[in-house]
Design a protein around this nucleic acid. Structure first.
Length: 110
DNA sequence: AACCTGACGAAGA
DNA sequence: TTCTTCGCCAGGT
């Protein structure tokens, strides 16, 4: 284990700040953290540190509005978590970003 | 220093 | 609309 970079800590902070009933996309989180092209790093963090940092990982989805987990079981699980917060998950595990994306333009006040 | 990986994403075909 | 390709990033599988 190594000490997370500032960039990584920013990402973690942002994810922990996502309100219930809202979602954020990988790319958007990366952008808020300062590097719009580091979406993959966001996925890596979720994959490796969700448990460690107790992150609301289920509130992070792809830019196309779909759940990104690989197996059907995992997608189903994430879908349940989202619906528990009032988020409607449509066929194909898709979420209406227009409706549920967390509108935030800066992390200044996080 | 080099290489590999992932719950990505935009652009093409 | 779906599939493929290619570029990106930081951590370490």
């Amino acid at each position: 284990m190594s000490i997370p970079s500032d960039f990584t800590e920013q990402i973690i902070h942002i994810i922990k700040s996502i309100p219930k009933g809202r979602v954020l996309t990988y790319g958007f989180i990366a952008k808020l953290a300062g590097n719009p092209r580091a979406a993959r790093q966001v996925s890596w963090i979720l994959h490796s540190s969700s448990k460690k940092y107790n992150l609301p990982w289920h509130r992070v989805i792809s830019s196309n509005g779909k759940i990104s987990l690989k197996s059907f079981e995992d997608r189903q699980y994430q879908k349940n978590l989202l619906e528990q917060e009032g988020i409607k998950v449509l066929d194909g595990f898709k979420v209406n970003l227009e409706k549920y994306l967390w509108k935030i333009n800066s992390i200044e006040n996080l």
